[in-house]
Design a protein around this nucleic acid. Structure first.
Length: 815
DNA sequence: GAGCACTGC
């Protein structure tokens, strides 16, 4: 199909008033090149738009009724014998989509154009007529895609140049713009405002600018929090472009490891956790005139704590304006919490999404998902598919089965490109999902929850939602965490469905019945604060001078048992005194952005002269369990590589230290990581954390000292933080925790899993198939009494059962 | 001898 020049040029939005004539010439040249290229004819960048228009026309004539029903049934004629019967139940309406579709089409066109032609030229043509918003999106898309790396520089240059001339006008086309005056009036009249802004409304980028234009930045900053680092960075970058200032000057962002602000900064985007940290240094947020908590509906731990804090300070700082921005579903809850604050609604931009449920419940959602994918592939028009699964293992299984089944069908069906994506997947493999789908093929993205909020994939038209996800929960009684598969909430289901309506009208296939949806799913996911270990939260609040935690004004209070457990722990770590006040130790601990037990371990390392080793261990532990890479087909090699760091049965903490130090010796070599089955990304993170901790040591006046030949010193420092995570070997080969006795096991991935020392200290308890201790070191029982005499008495650690120990066990390296 | 959703400081 030929590219229709006029179809672009007639669109008023794409037309630049002043530069029109020049633009036209340049554009014509670009298009000529496009036509000259061999591949030019193969693409129809506007297919998507045409399909959409067709759909809209169809909608106008068909409307509802029996005719509509019939079509839905026709759509899903079975191709496979065991096909799944879907019923279209509802349509999630798109909002304000009139002309914006143009730009969706344009950027996918340009994307192809960059790839096949000349990035600079095409962008040059469009740069002054294209909406900033799509420009930013496009840029993101280009940078994310490995194929486009070499265009980075040029695109960026054009992007910048383009901005100066068009920034202001473009802002006027966002859906929020007509509400500008009304919004500013509302902010003026009320101290707290709940803003309901759907995706694409422009609230995150525009509201802080409106406030700045209205003079709110004269006496303080406008701060805007985001739940994720990338969001804070990219939004700040966009706003600085729109305002025509350099990033880090008037507009900046602040995230961990990276403070891109200066004294000039008046619009500051940051992660929610970062604002929480700022509270510690500035408990009344005196330097802010407005705080906007964005994406509040996500209810991250930090957001929830921020709510309590900002609500509190708004009582005595009447000049501080609060904006809470959230998705539609729970706006009233936010309003109630903030003393009936008014709700301000702003429409967004999204295409309509048809929602289909299964007629009958599906017993096996994995199988149902596979069948649905194939059904879509065979019966539905082009468009990529996104399948939500719960974890790596499921993704690998579905990947295999899909490959197997499509191979069986041979050339009868079009090519199906399968792309797995989950957070622990190495970055270079993740990039695959952003590659454009070749003509005639269809892409299936198998994703975890990462695709629900954290990353968006263009071109997704169909979403398959089995209705499950893995959720972490915490049992305060046993101190055990578990990661289990749970049904998702309605809010989550809506979010997943919406993922198909980003670049055109979409369809969502839910692998559960409409009855299940309405009757069995919770409205919202239980907020994190109610299912997590609160030790760190309590320490933070205590260091802010908040003493009465049980009566702290949480929007959804955590279980009081969890608070008491946290208080107990902090007392045992001597971070709190018997009156519940912060001690000197506690004050030092609060400086570290770590779990209190890790912080205590660092503070204690001063005494044992091994702070150098301890901060490496703390950094490695806080990266989590994603250090070692263990692909399915090379498990034996990976396990051997891991055991190399464990010679002498030194314990997992020391093994982690060995990993870090070996990596450091290679001058942080990437190659070394590959050779040893270690995740580069995790190691870099560990290095960043370690650097930060090193800086903080100075702040709490702990000298950096190393005791390379005294592992006992290191283990004693660890014990100082983790003494209540002690366990003793039983006759059966299981362990029993010393306080609050329960039966636990060493995790098979531990270097000590075959050794079974008599006494161990563990880093964490995780409930999976069994109650497992993850990251274990051996311990001399007298240390417990020596290090924590207030917690252990001699009788607790008497080795009464030692003679009955099974032969060959309980004799580890330390004898 | 088993299995690590996702963020954030």
């Amino acid at each position: 199909m030929q590219l229709e020049l006029g179809s672009i040029y007639r669109m008023p939005d794409a037309y630049d008033q002043e530069g029109g004539v020049n633009q036209e010439k340049r554009f014509a040249a670009a298009v000529q090149r496009y036509k000259d290229s061999a591949v030019g004819d193969k693409m129809n960048p506007f297919a998507e738009q045409e399909a959409w228009e067709e759909h809209q026309i169809g909608k106008a004539t068909l409307k509802f009724g029996s005719k509509n029903k019939k079509q839905a049934v026709d759509d899903y004629q079975y191709v496979f014998e065991d096909g799944i019967d879907f019923i279209k139940e509802s349509v999630m309406d798109g909002v304000q989509v009139e002309r914006h579709k143009t730009f969706f089409s344009l950027d996918s066109y340009i994307c192809c154009g960059c790839y096949l032609l000349n990035a600079v030229l095409i962008l040059d043509v469009y740069s002054s007529s294209m909406k900033m918003h799509w420009m930013a999106r496009l840029l993101k898309m280009l940078l994310q895609n490995l194929h486009f790396k070499r265009f980075k520089y040029d695109v960026f240059n054009n992007f910048r140049l383009a901005n100066f001339s068009i920034a202001y006008d473009d802002r006027k086309t966002l859906p929020i713009y007509p509400y500008r005056e009304e919004l500013l009036q509302a902010v003026n009249d009320h101290q707290v405002l709940v803003i309901v802004g759907e995706t694409g409304s422009g609230k995150t980028t525009q509201i802080p600018q409106y406030l700045h234009e209205a003079g709110y930045t004269k006496h303080g900053k406008v701060g805007c929090t985001q739940p994720r680092r990338v969001a804070a960075m990219s939004v700040a970058a966009r706003v600085s472009q729109e305002m025509g200032v350099k990033l880090g000057h008037e507009v900046g962002y602040s995230i961990r490891f990276e403070d891109c602000t200066s004294e000039k900064t008046i619009l500051k985007y940051m992660t929610d956790g970062m604002l929480l940290r700022e509270f510690l240094g500035e408990p009344d947020l005196a330097s802010y005139s407005v705080v906007m908590v964005d994406e509040a509906h996500e209810r991250t731990l930090s957001t929830d704590i921020l709510f309590g804090l900002v609500k509190d300070i708004s009582r005595f700082r009447k000049d501080l304006k609060l904006l809470i921005s959230s998705a539609t579903l729970d706006a009233e809850k936010f309003s109630d919490y903030f003393d009936s604050a008014p709700i301000f609604k702003i429409p967004g931009r999204r295409f309509p999404v048809d929602i289909h449920f299964t007629k009958a419940p599906e017993a096996d959602y994995i199988d149902a998902a596979i069948v649905t994918v194939l059904q879509i592939h065979v019966t539905q028009p082009p468009g990529d598919i996104l399948v939500f699964l719960t974890g790596q293992e499921e993704i690998e299984t579905v990947d295999e089965i899909l490959k197997h089944r499509t191979r069986g069908l041979g050339t009868k069906i079009a090519e199906l490109i399968i792309c797995p994506i989950y957070a622990n997947l190495p970055t270079e493999l993740q990039a695959k999902i952003f590659e454009p789908t070749p003509e005639g093929a269809r892409k299936v993205v198998l994703a975890t929850n990462i695709a629900e909020t954290s990353l968006t994939i263009d071109g997704i038209k169909y979403v398959v939602d089995p209705g499950f996800c893995k959720i972490k929960s915490y049992n305060p009684r046993t101190g055990m965490e578990s990661l289990q598969i749970n049904p998702i909430s309605k809010a989550s289901a809506m979010q997943r469905a919406g993922r198909s309506g980003r670049t055109g009208p979409g369809k969502c296939f839910r692998l559960y019945t409409a009855y299940n949806y309405h009757h069995d799913l919770e409205d919202n996911t239980v907020p994190e604060i109610q299912r997590t270990n609160l030790a760190n939260v309590v320490l933070t609040l205590k260091s802010l001078g908040i003493h009465d935690l049980v009566n702290f004004d949480f929007m959804d209070p955590p279980p009081s048992e969890a608070i008491l457990k946290a208080l107990e722990l902090l007392f045992a770590l001597s971070a709190l005194n018997s009156k519940g006040e912060l001690t000197m130790v506690g004050r030092r601990m609060a400086e570290f952005p770590l779990d209190p037990m890790l912080s205590k371990m660092i503070v204690a390392s001063d005494k044992y002269k091994c702070s150098d080793e301890i901060i490496s261990i703390a950094a490695m532990l806080s990266v989590g369990n994603s250090i070692f890479y263990r692909p399915k087909d090379k498990q034996v090699h990976a396990d051997n590589a891991r055991l190399n760091f464990h010679t002498g049965n030194v314990g997992d903490h020391i093994a982690l230290l060995n990993v870090y130090n070996s990596w450091k010796e290679t001058n942080f070599s990437t190659q070394w990581c590959y050779e040893n089955y270690i995740q580069v990304r995790s190691m870099k993170r560990a290095r960043d954390i370690r650097d930060q901790l090193e800086g903080l040591l100075e702040r709490v006046e702990i000298e950096i000292t190393a005791s390379p030949n005294d592992l006992d010193a290191v283990k004693k420092a660890i014990t100082s933080g983790f003494f209540h995570h002690s366990a003793r070997l039983q006759k059966t080969g299981a362990y029993k925790t010393v306080k609050n006795p329960q039966t636990v096991y060493i995790h098979p991935s531990s270097g000590l899993a075959q050794v079974l020392p008599r006494w161990v200290i563990y880093h964490e308890l995780v409930l999976t198939a069994k109650e497992y201790m993850r990251q274990v070191i051996e311990l001399k029982p007298d240390w417990l009494v020596e290090i924590a005499p207030h917690y252990y008495k001699l009788k607790d650690v008497e080795d009464t059962g030692s003679k009955k120990m099974p032969r060959g066990q309980g004799r580890a390296a330390m004898d």
